[in-house]
């Protein structure tokens, strides 16, 4: 697919997100006091009927326009059955930040990505509460609410990318037992401690997609997480790549990972000529990880 093909897909998906999906998320946020627990899941892993409705809507619209593309969505995903192939595949989280959505914390959004050869090449994230639309496609840069975003200028104005001067997004997720929970909390503590990473601070928005969008916009320096899925990161990954950012694994030496790796470290871009800062940042960060995050 050429950059102009991708740009036209991006435009179509932006319209879908802002005109059809956004209004539903906005009007239903904080109104769903009854919700289900995901099948076989923990008490804190919740899904509402609106998640399912919105996914159906997105699937229908995308299939009508792009009948040959594959579709993977959070609500229709089947563990062990659904696989990402080389073919053009929409990877969709109808409502990212479902807990935010239930509680009306204004960081639920829709996240629609596209992979070709398993690589994210288009991404659209829309948060209707803040009316923030961020979109990108490979080779075409990033747009915020439809306007080209000058990420180079933004990065020039930021400080150097150094672990102990950075603000890091961290989320505990829904696994609250066992080794991964332990590893996460020990790592959070180590990042904050004055004898550890001694980072400027952490932030937790409760939405992977919004977090990746915020990194691309230059609001955050990085995001470390485990337990999320391809639909949580696919759109944000493409957007971040277009601003010089990079996604690697959450564990030491995981330089090359697939979209469905389930553990991620997303890091912002750096000034031209300071690219090695990014590599060093990743290595320093990995040095603070206590243990290993593992998911099946």
């Amino acid at each position: 697919m050429t950059p102009s093909d991708l740009l036209s897909i991006e435009k179509f998906v932006c319209d879908l997100a802002t005109n059809k999906v956004g209004p539903i998320i906005k009007s239903k946020s904080g109104t769903q006091q009854t919700y289900d627990l995901k099948t076989g899941s923990r008490k804190v892993d919740i899904v509402t009927v609106i998640d399912k409705q919105v996914e159906k809507l997105i699937w229908g619209e995308l299939r009508a326009e792009y009948p040959d593309f594959k579709f993977i969505g959070e609500e229709s995903y089947m563990k062990g059955v659904t696989r990402i192939t080389e073919e053009p595949t929409f990877i969709v989280d109808p409502i990212d930040g479902t807990t935010n959505f239930v509680h009306d914390f204004p960081f639920s959004c829709t996240s629609i990505g596209l992979t070709v050869d398993k690589v994210p090449v288009m991404g659209v994230i829309y948060n209707p509460h803040l009316d923030l639309l961020i979109s990108a496609s490979k080779g075409n840069g990033v747009r915020i609410n439809g306007k080209d975003f000058d990420y180079k200028e933004k990065i020039e104005g930021m400080g150097p990318l150094i672990l102990n001067k950075s603000v890091v997004a961290l989320q505990p997720g829904s696994a609250r037992e066992g080794n991964n929970f332990k590893c996460k909390l020990a790592t959070f503590e180590n990042l904050l401690a004055c004898d550890g990473g001694f980072i400027h601070g952490f932030r937790n928005l409760g939405s992977s997609a919004m977090t990746m969008a915020y990194i691309a916009m230059g609001y955050l320096d990085c995001y470390w997480d485990g337990g999320c899925y391809s639909w949580d990161v696919c759109a944000g990954w493409c957007i971040l790549n277009e601003t010089g950012g990079r996604v690697v694994g959450a564990n030491q030496s995981e330089w090359d990972i697939g979209v469905d790796n389930r553990t991620y470290l997303a890091v912002r871009g750096t000034k031209i000529g300071s690219e090695e800062d990014q590599t060093k940042y990743i290595e320093d960060f990995w040095g603070c990880v206590k243990g290993k995050l593992e998911y099946d």
């Binding site: 008490k43 804190v44 505990p172 609250r176 929970f181 909390l185």
Partner: peptide, 20 residues
């Protein structure tokens, strides 16, 4: 305290948020 609040053996809260 954060650990207690999050843990499945403690508060097991839906989540925490930090805006700074």
């Amino acid at each position: 305290t954060y650990k207690n609040l999050l843990s499945d053996k403690g508060g097991y809260v839906h989540g925490f948020r930090s805006v700074g």
